[in-house]
Every structure is written in C-alpha cells, then in structure tokens.
Design a protein around this nucleic acid. Structure first.
Lengths: 206, 206
DNA sequence: TGTACATCAGTGAACGCGCGTTCACTGATGTAC
DNA sequence: TGTACATCAGTGAACGCGCGTTCACTGATGTAC
C-alpha cells in the first residue's frame, strides 16, 4: 500500500506525515530498530529522501511521533483490558497480560518507545490522566480498597510497572519456549509468572 | 592508560585483546552503545582500525567478548551479595539490590549483555551452575524450604528475574528522583519497590 | 469564471561523514639448526 | 651463540556502503482580484 506504484501516485502525496509514520512502523516490525533510517522510511513510503523534511524537523522528530503513537496505542490496549471486568483482582491480571502482549506484538515499537523516554524527565504516559501508568495506579488503588497512602500507591505502581516491563522485554526469549508449552500456551505462562510475583500481596490480604 | 602515548608503546601491544575489550567498555560507559564502533574501539586502544581483526573475527565477536565479561561480573556481584548473609529472606533482597545496582553502575554494558542474548536459545548465565540465574533459583529454593515443585521454582525464578530486569532498566529514569529523595536514597527506594512486589509471597507464608 | 502569483510539497543530486572490512605491507618475535 | 626463516601482530591506505541533511529546483495547489 505504501510502495511507490508509479502508475497512480500524484505529485503531492496527500498525507505524507501519516504515511511516513506507517512506513517507519513497518520497517521497525519487519527489519528491527537498527534498520530504521530516515532514508529507509522515505524509500518505504515511495518518496525522495528529502521529502520527510517537509513534515519532520529531523529523524528524532519522526521517531518521537512513532513513539507517541505507540504510547497512545498502549493506553488504549490497557483501557480495553481494564474494561473487560469489574473485579479488581482480575482487572490487575488482565492489565498485566495486555501490557506484555502489546510488547510481544510490537517488540521493536516497544523498544523505540522506551529508548525515546529514557532521558526524559517524565515518561509520556504519566502526563495524561487516562494514560497507561494512571490506569495501573488506579487499578491497584481499587485492589487496596482505596485505603493506601500516596507513597505506597506510587511504589506499588512502580513495582507493577517494572515487573511488567521486565516480562515484556523477556517474553520473546526462546529460552521460555519449553515452559510455555508445558503450561499450555503463552498466556497461561504469563498468568503463572504474574501469580508467582505474588504481586500486590500487600494489598490483597484482607 | 589505553591511549596511544607515542613515546613508549612497542610495535607489538602485548595484550591487545584485553585492551580492546577494556576500550570497548570505556566507550560504552562514556559515550553509550550507539558510539561503539570497531574503529572507535581501535582508536581508543591507540591502534590501527585493522588491528582488532587479528584478535576478533568481526565486530560481533568483540561485542560477544564484552557481553561475556559482563555476565561474568554479574555472577560475581550476585555471589558476593548472596554470601553476605545466611538468612534466606535477606539473601533474596540483597540479590535483588545487587542485580539492580550492577545495571545502574554499568547501564550500557547491561544493555549490550541483553542485546547479545535476545536471539539466542539460551541465556549465557543459564549455562553454568554458578551463574546468576542459578543463584537466584537456589535462593528462592532456600526461601521455600526446598518444598517446591520444579516448575514452580522455575516460574518463581523467572518472575524474580523479570522484576529485577524491569527495575534495572528503569532505575536510571529521572522520573523516580523525587521518590528516591523522599525515601532517603536509591537503595531504600529499591528495597521499598521489592517489598511492594510482595515477591515470593507464595513461598514465604509459612 | 479566469488569471496572476504566492506558497506548499515534492524531486534528485550532492555534501561530508563514519562505518566494517580487506589488502599488501612490514616490523618484531621466536624457533630450528 | 649465531643465523636463517617462518610466523605473528601490527600499519595505513583503500573499498564500497548507507547515512542525515542541504540545496536549488519544479510541479501542484489555492487564493485574491
């Protein structure tokens, strides 16, 4: 769809920004982050190497747009998972599975998202009230029945986030294949690992 | 120490393999993984760009050597942390802190270690009985008093490993600074997060 | 409705760069006799 | 102990490559009158 089919493409593209972000994501998922050059993106979008500069200041700005889109989609995936049940415990579990599955399905995008965040003061998802981080925090708060100090809530959210991130980064490791098979699939494996984290035990004892 | 001081260096280096690995690590920690080119390593070691080829087949092989050294040092750091106490619960906690501190102190090396592992069937540390992974597993086994199935032990180890990895990757995030200050330092923050993971609650209830 | 013209969004060639790797070479080392 | 010679471990120049970015340009679009 995004390749240059010399036949029909008009001189003006129509929505090149969009097409460039799509092209970047396609390259990311098919060839990995190392292959993501501005020239490759332009090539994939069927456009000259200079064209992207009419839409993005430089390569970093395009990457930023890609990462931003990734965070947004992660937000949506978590919101969807969270809405599937009203039971706090199950919500938490669904959230964890959804998070890791997002990373599994978009591994290169996921890496770009974090690479772009690493040196920022705030993670993008923290900026919005409906962001992924806040959804996790609110779900933990529900689990605790609301009776938890701000600082404990923050720590628990960080703990959960880190556990999810660690698992997300490792879920693709070939290493785990036998165990996954033994447990009857990847999601069962995921739930079993979360179970073993005994996550949020602190807030779930009552 | 590794710069070319034209005065004294003999034509033959003596131990260029060693010097190249050192140079690579220095670049890694001062300029980050993106700056790690073979040419930069040779430059840092004060040697021509072709010299490394007498010691490593290609760039990948040098990276491999660097990663290998990293895993080895991680093993040692964990062994040291584990030996500091005989109390299983404290051992586990120390192991977690030591792991994350290793990553914090060698962030770029840590990333290279995982980048080199990502596509392998087995993680290097699993291959040796005294490796980091086995140390974690054994400590969890101690916590459980030895009464735990193989599969549960494996799952718990993976859970702990992922949690540690997630925290290790995020520990440097500026985001956490206020919370660290509030808790009285990075190690206190770390221990608090581990505490909130409620890790190994499953095996610690008795 | 038609036309002049400013602006927008492309092109394609070129820039300088650093990279991984190879090559023919040479200086230093060590070993056999 | 001395010497011929094979081997080892460097050099420095060169290769082709893809990159990010800039430049002068031009075709397409939209707006004022």
């Amino acid at each position: 769809m995004s390749n240059a089919t010399a036949e029909s493409r008009p001189y003006h593209h129509g929505d090149l920004s969009r097409a460039l972000v799509d092209a970047a994501r396609k390259i990311l998922e098919t060839e990995g982050p190392a292959a993501l050059s501005l020239r490759a993106v332009a090539r994939e979008a069927g456009v000259s190497p200079a064209a992207p500069y009419h839409h993005f200041k430089d390569k970093a700005e395009l990457l930023e747009a890609v990462a931003h889109e990734g965070w947004h989609e992660l937000d949506e995936a978590l919101a969807k998972a969270r809405a599937e049940t009203a039971e706090p415990r199950a919500r938490m579990s669904n959230l964890g599975v959804a998070y890791v599955c997002f990373a599994r399905d978009n591994p290169a995008l996921y890496r770009v998202m974090y690479d772009r965040s690493r040196d920022k003061v705030a993670l993008p998802e923290r900026l919005r009230e409906d962001g992924a981080y806040c959804q996790v925090r609110e779900t933990i708060n529900e689990n605790a029945g609301g009776h938890v100090s701000d600082i404990d809530l923050e720590l628990a959210t960080i703990a959960a986030w880190c556990a999810g991130h660690g698992l997300a980064e490792m879920i693709g490791f070939k290493q785990f294949a036998p165990l996954k098979a033994q447990l009857g699939g990847e999601e069962a494996f995921l739930r079993a690992v979360f179970e073993h984290l005994g996550m949020f035990a602190k807030f779930n004892q009552g």
